[in-house]
């Protein structure tokens, strides 16, 4: 029993150490400019100045861009991957295995290897410096397809067979029966895709040079890249940009943990 308490105490200590930087992020946002770099554990003269400074129009625009990109990619990708995964799991057609193998093999390709050609293609398609350039290449992800396929392979056939006897077309069965019953895979993947795209830094940095389309990650990274960094503004902006993700994270934590179990995937 005593050992149990000691272990719990140790784990709580680890948890506090890991949470500490996040606490600093939130707490420092309320420190006055003079106090910013004194290592006090709470603001002695709390102020909203940093947050007011952080809420510039550029910051809000970057948040909007990130939201538009992340939400669009997530919603469209869910639909496309569900369709593709379902077809690979349930339909019978020529070249099925070949197609599946080609799709899976794209997983091996490191993003760095295709960064330059991808930029060239974006340029060729005329989608650099645009929402299309930020969204389109982010949509296609073989891992999502693979996980949907796995899910539908383990999906009970009875419902679909019953509908087929009734004369339902395969496409209709997917949209009216399989898709609405796919929540166990859609929820964790939605969270994973949203977080992944919200987090994305390199591609938005490369494909877009227009300030009005900076994503929030690019905006934040630019703030610390100069010679003198406005730390009070940086910390407050980072804190504000972290809030939506933290909220999503805390709401969806249960699903995220389940998702890790079922998918083994961020």
């Amino acid at each position: 029993m005593k050992r149990n308490y000691l272990t719990v105490a140790f784990l709580v200590l680890v948890a506090i150490i890991l949470l500490f930087p996040i606490y600093i992020l939130f707490m420092t946002s309320f420190k006055s400019a003079n106090e910013l770099f004194t290592a006090t554990l709470w603001p002695h003269f709390p102020t909203l100045d940093n947050i007011r400074a952080a809420l510039s129009s550029k910051f809000l625009v970057s948040i909007r861009t990130s939201l538009v990109v992340s939400i669009t990619v997530t919603v469209v990708a869910m639909l496309l991957h569900a369709m593709c995964g379902y077809a690979l799991a349930r339909f019978d057609f020529p070249f099925k295995d070949t197609l599946f193998r080609i799709i899976i093999s794209t997983l091996l390709i490191p993003s760095m290897t295709i960064l330059v050609p991808l930029f060239m293609i974006a340029k060729f398609l005329g989608i650099t410096n645009s929402y299309a350039g930020l969204i389109l290449p982010a949509l296609f992800n073989a891992y999502g397809i693979f996980l949907f396929r796995q899910f539908y392979l383990g999906f009970p056939r009875e419902l679909e067979e019953a509908a087929e006897v009734e004369g339902c077309s395969k496409a209709r069965i997917f949209f009216t029966i399989a898709l609405p019953l796919s929540k166990p895979i859609i929820i964790p993947l939605t969270i994973a895709f949203f977080l992944g795209n919200w987090n994305n830094y390199l591609w938005p940095l490369v494909v877009n040079k227009k300030e009005s389309l900076y994503t929030v990650q690019v905006y934040l990274a630019n703030m610390v890249s100069g010679y003198s960094t406005p730390w009070n503004k940086v910390i407050a902006s980072s804190m504000l940009a972290a809030i939506p993700v933290f909220i999503l994270f805390l709401i969806a934590q249960r699903y995220l943990q389940e998702g890790i179990k079922t998918t083994g995937f961020k």
């Binding site: 930087p21 600093i24 992020l25 919200w198 987090n199 830094y201 990650q217 934040l220 990274a221 703030m223 610390v224 940086v234 910390i235 980072s238 940009a241 972290a242 993700v245």
Partner: peptide
């Protein structure tokens, strides 16, 4: 996110 982790 990795950028926020970086600034922090």
């Amino acid at each position: 996110t990795s950028v926020i982790a970086s600034t922090l």
